[in-house]
Nucleic acid binder design. Structure first.
Lengths: 329, 329
DNA sequence: TTGAAAGCGCTACCAA
DNA sequence: TTGGTAGCGCTTTCAA
């Protein structure tokens, strides 16, 4: 494995000179012939600098760490994520995703801290604790930013309050004259951080209405599970259902139709996330659209936080939500 | 930022002792009181070891690097990926995803090489070149494994030949007596690596049939684009269409039905990926199911390659495919 | 314009 | 059982 010393030897110069040349050091002027000899030597050896050694020496890195999401990213989130990566790269950061599957919050924070990232962009879903934030900061992280429903002491927060989604759905259904509302809660593990606040939001929306009733409904993401739920549908006495998201809504919609339940006549069905696929159904699915922040904006927040580590944690409520009425409600 | 020297000072021992205690060194026996003093000092200071320093000293790391996928991962791939991460962690590797958005193949390989990963698991879609593999190996990567349609000189390969998907679809449609076959090619950038081989595979399946005709059809992932395509549907004179995947198939199916084209009577529609959502349509969507390798198996290949870096590159053809006939063909 | 050398944080060898 | 210390690859200050 070639090191800068090897390059120096081959070029007949010192390691210092190699470093100057390869980093385009402006403070030092290196003669053109020397510069070329070094470049050629580096190319010939296939020299690649050692990031760990470099950041060890420098005392800091430009690494922005994000935990790998456990759930499959939707197209929307995936888009924002790509934007974010672009924007951070333009600001000369390196984005690294770190798989923390099956670690507790504090374990994960420690594992991240070992990498000495300059910034951490973590989910704001309760896995990261104030202790975790403290560990990260002590280890040199200039900025810790959470992105999700909850904020964490000491960290900047981009609040995406999923309750707003539920509230929005609830308001729309009440608006349509529906009062006996089922709320689908996915049975699959890992969805609680989204489904619980969505349910809570819907509850909040119906709170002022004495005649309203909210019934949580467990549903697994498969047809037998939907059939089972629908088999006891009429006993439930619901006139509408908020199905967690468009995918569960589509699953439920088909099952309801197969059971002869008229949608929206007998039961209104509402999804969330505004997937294209939901628009393709008959009836077209009503949904809640969320507006995610632009990747550019996230990147700017991260950069600002890195440049001013002492600044007070910023808390940005994001996630504009909007009901999109279509044919299913 | 506390270092092991700080811990040593606080505990009143040497840095060596700190290292022994915190790494549970078996070759050395440390007395229980000392051990405790060190632990307490480390806890009190919130000491977290410095991964870069450690791997610099050790001369190697246990990092497995994967480029962050640009496209949103489907639920299937996402599942395999989670499995893989679990399995690698059990084997004591650290999985890190690195965003290489907007870098050329060789730039990306260099950027990866700077991190000195012990293994790289890259997409086998042509971005990684033999030069790239060489750079990675020179920089100490014990294993380079590609996962995708193409293999690369010098790297292990898990071949997922997307042509098999097209072949499978073609065979099924011919079987159903269809001979004038449209093939949807997504207009969105980034899909070529999948769509091109799927188209090629379908062409291959029809090659022996003189009466068969294959017509590529560009389609954007939105309703206007689908409407536009369908407006000239009858001029195209097709009796079937392989729609790239289930999502595009769903889009097209709705547009065809809106235009009064009977499916499957007038035109058979076939998707791929076997999404649950495709099963929910009327008619239920016929599709091609792919069998992905288990994450466990991928992890084992990586581990084997790391342990025997000199071994000849293994090439595993994966991706069993199977037509799933439902109502749309 | 170039070179010598210190030192980032850590571990492992050798000595006490 | 513990401590001293060299050295991983790199950058940067100081000297030549």
């Amino acid at each position: 494995m070639p090191t800068s010393a090897d390059v120096a030897r081959l070029a007949g110069v010192s390691r210092a000179t190699v470093s100057y040349v390869l980093n385009n050091a402006t403070a030092v002027r290196i003669s053109e012939p020397t510069r070329q000899r070094v470049q050629e030597a580096a190319d010939e050896l296939g020299y690649v600098p050692h990031a760990a050694a470099r950041s060890l020496r420098a005392g800091h890195s430009r690494m922005v760490l994000m935990p790998t999401p456990t759930m499959p990213m939707g197209a929307l989130y995936s888009h924002v994520f790509n934007e974010l990566q672009w924007a951070l790269r333009r600001l000369d950061y390196t984005v690294v995703q770190f798989g923390s599957l099956g670690m507790s919050g504090d374990e994960a924070a420690r594992a991240w801290a070992e990498l000495r990232p300059v910034a951490v962009l973590a989910p704001g879903d309760g896995t990261l604790t104030p202790r975790g934030v403290h560990v990260l900061k002590r280890s040199g992280a200039k900025a810790v930013v959470t992105l999700g429903p909850q904020r964490v002491e000491g960290a900047h927060a981009l609040l995406m309050d999923q309750r707003a989604v539920g509230r929005c759905a609830g308001a729309h259904l009440l608006d349509r004259g529906r009062t006996r509302i089922g709320v689908v809660v996915p049975r699959e593990p890992g969805y609680e951080t989204f489904s619980a606040p969505r349910l809570a939001g819907l509850r909040a929306a119906t709170e002022t209405r004495a005649d309203a009733r909210v019934v949580p409904l467990e549903l697994g993401y498969d047809e037998p599970s939907a059939a089972e739920l629908v088999a006891r549908w009429r006993q439930l006495g619901l006139d509408s259902v908020f199905a967690y998201n468009d995918e569960y809504a589509m699953l439920l919609l088909r099952a309801l139709q197969d059971a002869g339940v008229d949608v929206p006549g007998e039961t209104a069905v509402m999804g969330a996330d505004d997937l294209l696929l939901g628009r393709l159904l008959r009836p077209r699915l009503s949904t809640v659209r969320m507006e995610l922040p632009s990747g550019q904006r996230l990147a700017e927040l991260v950069d600002r936080a890195v440049r001013d580590p002492a600044g007070a944690p910023e808390v940005h409520p994001l996630l504009g939500t909007e009901a999109v009425p279509r044919e299913s409600t």
